[in-house]
């Protein structure tokens, strides 16, 4: 079973994402901000990360840059999932090493399609 770390400051979003990912046969971990997510990754690098952008303490992009510097951190497949939907944000995310990008709102179909594209399914 592959693991996916869900990083989002909204409990509701985490719950929805968790349900979808369980249906897709992922084992899930959760964090409410980038810094908590990084702590998890320092112990074990997840196969995938579903990542919000705007969060307190440490935002998604800062987390991603830090993750990519961790030993083994480049192997994790990172899919942004955020309300930021302009080209500049997407560009920044890709340059920081994101593998895919979902513009909220999201549903199971979009997550499945994107995860398939990056070879997670």
């Amino acid at each position: 079973m592959k693991s996916c770390l869900i990083v989002d400051d909204s409990k509701v979003v985490r719950m929805v994402a968790r349900k979808i990912l369980h249906e897709l046969n992922f084992e899930t971990l959760e964090a409410a901000d980038g810094s908590a997510a990084l702590d998890i990754c320092k112990k074990q690098i997840p196969d995938a990360v579903l990542l919000d952008w705007n969060m307190p303490v440490m935002d998604g992009i800062e987390f991603l840059r830090a993750l990519r510097k961790l030993p083994g951190g480049s192997a994790s497949i990172v899919v942004f999932c955020t309300t930021e939907n302009d080209i500049d944000h997407i560009q920044t995310a890709i340059e920081a090493g994101a593998n895919e990008y979902i513009m909220k709102p999201f549903d199971s179909e979009i997550i499945q399609a994107k995860f398939q594209q990056v070879g997670l399914l």
Binding site: I94, E100, I102, M103, A113
Partner: peptide
Amino acid sequence: QFEVQRGLPIQLLLKYFKK
């Protein structure tokens, strides 16, 4: 936004679309 998220890899969205 809904349509470009179904099947289109993000790199191709960036490369071939303007918003």
